[in-house]
Simulated assay, not measured.
Amino acid sequence: MLAELSSALIEEVERSAELLESKQHICLLTGAGISAESGIPTFRDKQTGLWENYRAEDLATPDAFARDPKLVWSWYQWRRQLVASKKPNPAHTALAQWQYHSQSTNQQLTLITQNVDDLHEQAGSAVTHLHGNLWRNRCSQCQTPYTIQLKSAYDSENSISFDEALMTCQHCDGYIRPDIVWFGESLPMRAWQTAEEAAANCDVFISIGTSSLVYPAAGLAQLAKHNGAKIIEINPYPTPNTLVDITLAAKAGAILPELVKRMGIL
């Protein structure tokens, strides 16, 4: 990966490693960019196949599900098929190794993700999901979790059912929906509290594969900065932002393995 990084970028990675080695509380927020490096389409990507005439933003809403639950459920089953074969990339692996290493040091890492896939878990990380989990379901009416999970990190792709038939709740007969946060819905309270507390009390806040100008990432970065934290952004397409102290303008899969290596973890 080193050959992919310019000398100027390598210097910034070294500066980041020196900073991180001297700090105790680290908050990391990952977004769509890290999953895209594993081949998972982002919401900005054009829909394909049967779904090319739909916008993702028009399907991922409570109103869309109320209007046509079969359409929305079928789309999510299609998305699950896209994601099922994807594997963690070097960025996920590096974060998991860093988190594991921190258990034997005084450093505390809190990993938060905006992604709904389970690639962090597959790599071995403990992670808080702000937007829910694509592989979990709940009732759209009474919110009871649907106990039959579609997938775990240890399932093989062949064991997953992608049946498009609607399911109903055994408690209230409401339709079962994906347990993820749709447009217009609030973030899960416990997950958001974890994120806020980690951001407010961290020494360094690292934004990975997500714009530090877009909420909720922007709010967490601002909270961290307000409380004296340094801000590092890892993004091949960084946005100008006075909050950011160190910009690492490259893919997370190239930056993070090199970063943890220079911290003596790999």
Rank of each mutant, 00 (worst) to 15 (best):
A191P: 15
Q99W: 01
A84W: 01
Q114D: 06
S152R: 08
E4R: 12
D245A: 10
L223C: 11
T168D: 01
G124H: 06
Y175H: 14
L29P: 06
E233F: 00
S6C: 05
Q141T: 01
S35C: 12
A224W: 02
E37P: 06
V260R: 03
R67V: 04
T93L: 07
T48Y: 05
H226I: 04
T210A: 02
I234D: 02
A17Y: 08
I232R: 00
N201S: 15
A217E: 01
Y100F: 11
N241C: 11
D63F: 10
K151H: 04
D117T: 12
Y175C: 06
Q143G: 01
K87L: 14
A224R: 07
A126G: 13
R177D: 02
M263V: 08
Q81R: 13
A229M: 13
G184D: 06
A217P: 02
S152E: 07
G264E: 07
N53M: 08
P90H: 10
L259Y: 06
T93F: 07
T210G: 04
Q193R: 15
Y215K: 01
S152P: 05
A17H: 13
T48C: 04
A165L: 03
Q77L: 01
L9P: 04
S125R: 08
H171R: 12
L59Y: 07
S156C: 14
I208R: 02
T42Q: 07
F43K: 07
K86Q: 13
Y154F: 06
R79A: 02
H131F: 10
S152Q: 07
N53H: 15
L119T: 04
R177A: 00
S156L: 13
G264A: 12
D45M: 11
L50D: 13
R55H: 10
A126R: 13
A191E: 08
G219F: 01
N235T: 09
V72Q: 12
L248R: 01
S7F: 13
L259E: 09
S22P: 04
Q108K: 14
A8N: 15
N137K: 02
P90W: 12
S156I: 08
Y146I: 00
A36D: 11
T144A: 15
K225M: 05
P90A: 10
Q107S: 06
E197A: 05
G49D: 11
A191W: 02
E196T: 14
P236I: 08
T194L: 07
N89K: 11
Q103E: 07
D163T: 00
N235R: 06
K151V: 09
N241K: 10
V127H: 00
A191K: 06
I112K: 00
H129V: 15
E37Q: 10
